[in-house]
């Protein structure tokens, strides 16, 4: 049986803008995935714990506050400490292009910048989860 892909949509830090996260969550559901949405104000610790308990295939992080260079690598690091590096980590929000190489070096598989159609995100996740 082809089981649904499970994705954790997470809002780390203090950023309260959740329109994008919610739109992506719905789009992922419409594409047949099971989406766990964390809500706002998540610490990297909370995100990783949720990812592990929910046994997700992908963690999709939405951040618009400029704190991405701190928070995204932290999530990747904590996942590694829990032996969970097989979980795909992607991000989106207000993230300048010039920060993307740094984020990719730190284990984020892809960054979806403003204007990316949800179909692109969906296809990437489908193609890159480790199953």
């Amino acid at each position: 049986m082809d089981r649904p892909i499970r994705v954790l949509v997470a809002k780390p830090g203090l950023d309260g803008h959740d329109r994008g996260a919610k739109v992506v969550a719905r789009a992922l559901r419409d594409a047949g995935m099971e989406v766990i949405y964390t809500g706002l104000r998540q610490t990297p610790d909370q995100i990783v714990n949720a990812a592990i308990q929910e046994d997700v295939d992908c963690v999709a992080i939405s951040i618009l506050s400029g704190a991405h260079n701190t928070l995204l690598p932290k999530v990747v690091k904590l996942l590694a400490e829990q032996d969970a590096s097989d979980i795909l980590v992607v991000g989106g929000g207000v993230i300048p292009d010039e920060d993307i190489p740094f984020l990719k070096e730190n284990g984020i598989a892809e960054i979806f910048t403003p204007g990316t159609p949800t179909s692109v995100t969906i296809e990437f996740i489908k193609a890159n989860v480790n199953r």
Partner: peptide, 22 residues
């Protein structure tokens, strides 16, 4: 910035990476 808007000082755990950004 967000820590100020949410009533946290710049040295609070949740302020990490957020100080002065927005």
């Amino acid at each position: 910035d967000l820590p100020t808007q949410i009533g946290y000082d710049s040295d609070h755990e949740l302020s990490e990476g957020e100080v002065g950004k927005v």
